[in-house]
């Protein structure tokens, strides 16, 4: 099993190449260079393959982060993964960015709240409980203002570790709600965590066709319906749907 893992759903971009023994090569573009996903990704794949002494024909599967997060970054990752899987006939696995944030802190021995900055004063989040060998998601993926998450944290009345750039951006509000906010290495979902989570799924035959990779947006697109200007004109019978 040789899996290529692509995670570009937040301001940090990452590529990892892993086999059953672990990660062979990885490349990361820091969040400070954010939004350069599209320029970074393809050269980073070539770099990881070269460093691992492997080629595209050696790949046996593709994994990708599905978001929620930055829509453009998510789409760049998924378009890259889906096309690669289609062209090479490889199974593909998609995993939510929030799962990738919770997994590395599975040894925290308390409830974990994974967050991604959703801009406009909002966050994406989900709660996870440590379980043997990983984490168990206990709430659905949500989007909302920080106040809503703070309310959930207070209502929970439990010791919670918040991770992710959403929590970092809203640290004060979450700490006032009694939560701890992790820092540093836990800010962004990584391609290494993606590869680690994807490998067992692929071994269980849970890889799907490229069309099964569907982004997790959690929001509807911003779009307004423009009402037609109310000007009366006469249209011929059957000639369109004009206002008569």
């Amino acid at each position: 099993m040789l899996v290529l893992a692509l995670e570009t759903s937040t301001a940090q971009s990452g590529v990892a190449l892993a086999n059953d023994a672990g990660v062979l090569a990885a490349a990361t573009l820091g969040a400070q260079r954010g939004r350069a996903h599209a320029e970074f990704l393809a050269p980073a794949i070539a770099f990881c393959l070269a460093r691992a002494g492997a080629g595209i024909p050696d790949l046996t599967a593709v994994a990708v982060g599905l978001g929620p997060g930055l829509y453009t970054g998510m789409r760049v990752g998924i378009a890259t993964a889906a096309t690669l899987a289609a062209a090479r006939g490889l199974p593909a696995v998609g995993i939510a960015s929030l799962d990738l944030l919770a997994f590395p802190v599975r040894h925290a021995r308390r409830m974990v709240c994974a967050t991604v900055d959703a801009r406009r004063g909002e966050l994406f989040w989900a709660f996870y409980r440590p379980s043997p060998g990983g984490v168990q998601q206990v709430t659905e993926h949500r989007v909302g203002p920080v106040g809503k998450l703070a309310g959930e944290l207070s209502a929970l009345g439990e010791d919670v570790l918040c991770v992710g750039d959403g929590a970092v951006a809203h640290r004060a509000a979450l700490e006032s709600a009694g939560a701890d906010v992790g820092a540093g290495a836990t800010d962004h979902p990584t391609a290494q965590a993606l590869a680690e989570l994807a490998l067992p799924r692929l071994r269980r035959g849970e890889g799907g066709p490229p069309g099964s990779l569907r982004p997790v947006y959690l929001r509807r697109p911003d779009a307004r319906i423009n009402p037609p200007a109310p000007i009366l004109v006469t249209v011929p019978p059957g000639g369109g749907e004009g206002n008569r």
């Binding site: 595209i56 789409r75 096309t83 690669l84």
Partner: peptide, 20 residues
């Protein structure tokens, strides 16, 4: 449109890599 363009550009790069 940049968001629209990026889907095609990402796919094309991936295809170029995949097919060498």
């Amino acid at each position: 449109l940049v968001g629209a363009l990026l889907v095609g550009v990402a796919a094309a790069k991936s295809l170029a890599l995949a097919c060498d």
